[in-house]
């Protein structure tokens, strides 16, 4: 368990980048810190692996303060995915993935095996990719390697600092899926930082919304949509809510819902085509199989995944 207790950060000239924030991350949780850039979320993340030392408060990792750990040993138990990927350009993909294992003095054969297995799982066949250099891979492929590099040593915690912000929407979407897969498969604790609310909604078990160096609200994605704590949090959805078009219309435009026939529609609850986003979320939580709506003479099936995909793909772009 990770616990931020009264953690603050200010510089010598008294600029406060982080006020006293408190939150906990449970083991196996995918916790997302979201907020506009410059709100201290990356600073908060880097405090966990000691890249930044807080000026106030303490962070507890498994009940012990971070500053009491041998920082290098602690870092070996943490994976790290960087915004600009930062694969070591002089090392092969295989060596990049095995770098933490190498530091742990694990035998070469084992390192190779782990790298190969991971590469195969993420759709980069090991026999083709293991010995390539990072520069020979596309940006999306590189970050795929960046993610498996972070989990190769089976760390207790994986830190991801805006890992997909530099990628194109398709790669971003695929890699978000990868993060969810990994999270499910290894049940690893993940602290994920992003400025993209849709990404946060799609990934987070729980989401901490940060703004102006303060924690605004910590809640599940549905609760955030249902009950934003204040105007700041609400404003994150402005992109989605500022249009008069009903959400169903937007989903149709984005083709993130499926046309079904009447026989299939009978088993699902029906919602009004003019339903609000928040209401849709609430309904979908109660009906995990999805809901049906009647629009423009056709029947559409909408699931929670459809909605989150739409939001994550940057729903506001369509507005």
């Amino acid at each position: 368990m990770i616990e931020y207790r009264d953690v603050g950060m200010h510089y010598s000239d008294d600029t406060q980048v982080l006020h006293h924030i408190n939150f906990t991350i449970e083991d196996g949780e995918l916790f997302v810190l979201v907020g506009p850039s410059g709100t201290g979320k990356t600073t908060a993340l880097k405090m966990l692996n000691g890249l930044v030392v807080p000026t106030d408060g303490n962070i507890y990792f498994d009940g012990k303060r971070i500053k009491e750990y041998d920082i290098r040993k602690l870092r070996l138990q943490m994976g790290y995915v960087l915004q600009n990927i930062s694969l070591f350009p002089n090392l092969t993909i295989e060596d990049n993935i095995g770098i933490q294992l190498e530091e742990m003095k694990r035998p070469t054969a084992e390192r190779k095996q782990i790298a190969a297995d991971l590469l195969n799982t993420v759709g980069l066949p090991a026999e083709k990719y293991a010995h390539r250099m990072p520069s020979e891979l596309s940006g999306g492929e590189q970050q795929r390697v960046g993610i498996i590099r972070a989990i190769a040593a089976r760390p207790k915690v994986v830190l991801m600092d805006e890992p997909f912000s530099a990628l194109d929407p398709v790669s971003r979407h695929n890699l978000q899926d990868l993060v969810l897969q990994i999270h499910q498969k290894y049940n690893s604790t993940i602290l994920f930082v992003t400025h993209d609310m849709n990404e946060a909604l799609r990934l987070g078990d729980r989401i901490g919304v940060m703004a102006e160096g303060d924690m605004q609200q910590i809640a599940t994605p549905q609760a955030l949509l249902d009950h934003p704590a204040n105007d700041i949090v609400r404003s994150f959805f402005s992109g989605i809510s500022k249009t008069d078009k009903p959400v169903v219309e937007l989903l149709k435009q984005a083709q993130t819902c499926t046309v079904i026939d009447e026989s299939e529609a009978q088993s699902l609850p029906q919602v009004d085509a003019l339903i609000t986003t928040a209401d849709l979320v609430t309904t979908l939580r109660q009906h995990p199989d999805g809901v049906v709506t009647h629009s423009g003479g056709r029947l559409f099936k909408i699931t929670m995944d459809d909605l989150l995909d739409f939001l994550a793909a940057g729903g506001e772009a369509l507005v």
Partner: peptide, 23 residues
Amino acid sequence: IDPSLEEAATAFGLSRSRKLFRL
């Protein structure tokens, strides 16, 4: 050297000498 590479190496817990010789 790109500071983010240095940061990655530090964040992975690499020792001073491994950082030097590997990176």
